[in-house]
Design a protein around this nucleic acid. Sequence first.
RNA 1: GGAGAGUUGGCAGAGUGGUUGAAUGCGACGGUCUUGAAAACCGUUAUACUGGGGAACCGGUAUCCGGGGUUCGAAUCCCUGACUCUCCGCCA
Length: 426
Amino acid sequence: MLDIKFIRQNSDLVKQAIKNKNEKDRIDELLELDKKRREILSKVEELKAYQNRVSKEIAQLKKENKDTTEIFAKMKSISDEIKSLDDEVKDLEVKIDEILRWTPNMPHSSVPVGKSSEDNVEVRRWIPEGMNIENKKDNVLDHIELGKKLSILDFERGAKISGSGFPLYKGKGATLERALINFMLDYHLEKHGYSEIFPPFLVNRDSMRGTGQLPKMEEDMYCITKDDLFPVPTAEVPITNIHREEILNEDDLPLYYVGYSACFRREAGSYGKESKGFLRVHQFNKVEMVKFSKPENSYDELEKLVNDAEDILKALKIPYRVLLLCTGDLSFSAAKCYDIETWSPAENRWLEASSCSNFEAFQARRANIRFRRKGDKKVEYVHTLNGSGLATSRLMVSILENYQQDDGSIVVPEVLRPYTKFDIIQ
RNA sequence: GGAGAGUUGGCAGAGUGGUUGAAUGCGACGGUCUUGAAAACCGUUAUACUGGGGAACCGGUAUCCGGGGUUCGAAUCCCUGACUCUCCGCCA
């Protein structure tokens, strides 16, 4: 959510930002409502001030046993007037809030302006020593074929149990998945100084609003209507909401959290080639990093966050590239975002495995997460950041395909072996 | 799922219709005293919106879990929702 005062004073900037993000502009309507609200507000507050004053006088009169009939009649009509004006203000506030919640975050000045993913900028790429992704082997199997052949992935039975997009891992495939999650968690804990969180997987509506999934993405979220709970689309939601409605100490910042969760996404409207196997699923596993930072440090923290995700891929020796997303591809809540894509030899293309974003105060304002500087009276919003570190499904595609041998077996990446207790899948 | 008890400022905890943004205690911060510290004493101690001002600041309004209602007036009465705790039932 953007600050209404900021919008008031910088409406042109905000409009430009909305345009760059390909979102709908309702700023003029917003400002009109805002103006009206403040007009009525000053009227009703004046009446309330009068009411409060007279109310004290009445208390005095009552004490002296004086007649109050006349004054009561007068105050009744004022009370009624206040009530109706209050209703008007409330009505306007609901409308204002609605538009604000549908207004996207503003891209940071360092974000390239662009229309779609075509305009994203590759910042760097990393290829393990001795590997050349240009040298395409002929007989590489894709992850679906590998999964089937080695009996480690079973998409058909997953579909039988739940529906398409719910992968079933079996045997060494299940172990490999678990190893990967544990490896990533341990790595961030030990090497990058994060604190571990194991969050709830179902969250309430307030939490979903806090991080910005609602109202805009409601169609893409699963919902347990009976209890009005949502299966988390990412651990970002429960972890960021840890500090909802809180005022943090300056000394506590930055806060680094890392947590695993299963992630649930309806992915409404996406079918076909793009969604085969692991490429698009309704349930996947992800280790998520979340940071709460002081505003002046948040962009340094973003760079570090991306590096933290990259370190995992370097340790796994998976080729990847880092993209700086352009304004048009930037998500609703983000001010700046880097995607990390890993190489898939079978698909012969890059697959998004991580997304690292700085939300600045956008989520913090929605979720009311603030901090107080030492010796300072005022509170400020923190900046929130998060990044996948990483999502296992896409990563699993790259691991299986990159580590496959000519005989169709798969060598387990060295760093995972202490977790898997085996070094080859065949 | 059933029955009951709760939810008040950073924390503890008063307050059952009228100068209550809210007693008191603790904590925190500032000061006095002290070579320094402790103790003691004095003072300060929420957030949001809104108007004025360049700003420090000043005024108004709201907030005692959320929402609705009764009333001239609600922390206090009524309805409703959420959460917490205790007991019973069920259960991995």
